[in-house]
């Protein structure tokens, strides 16, 4: 389950960043290392909300720095739902 979630989120993030999933280490900094912009962060957030039917508050945007951080955030949000 967790592994699936990891792969799904990796897929979502790499599609939006236009990278290959294998080029995206889970602990890479998305802005510094992967060239993400704030608009890409917004697209990632919107895609996650739609896919997992969760609500991610605006304050969380600044914590979405790595794929690992995004996975923990989604897991926490799914528990709250």
């Amino acid at each position: 389950m967790t592994h699936n979630l990891e792969q799904e989120i990796l897929g979502i993030v790499s599609t939006i960043l236009e990278k290959k999933p294998e080029e995206m280490p889970l602990d890479a900094h998305l802005v510094r290392d992967a060239g993400a912009s704030s608009m890409m962060a917004l697209e990632i957030l919107a895609a996650l909300e739609k896919k997992y039917k969760i609500v991610i508050p605006e304050e969380n945007l600044k914590d979405m720095t790595t794929i690992n951080n995004i996975i923990s955030m989604v897991e926490a949000a799914k528990k709250k739902r």
Binding site: S38, M39, L42, E43, A46, E49, K50, E58, L61
Partner: peptide
């Protein structure tokens, strides 16, 4: 809206 945040929106 898909997502509206202060200073940006989709």
């Amino acid at each position: 809206p898909i997502k509206l945040l202060s200073k940006m929106g989709l």
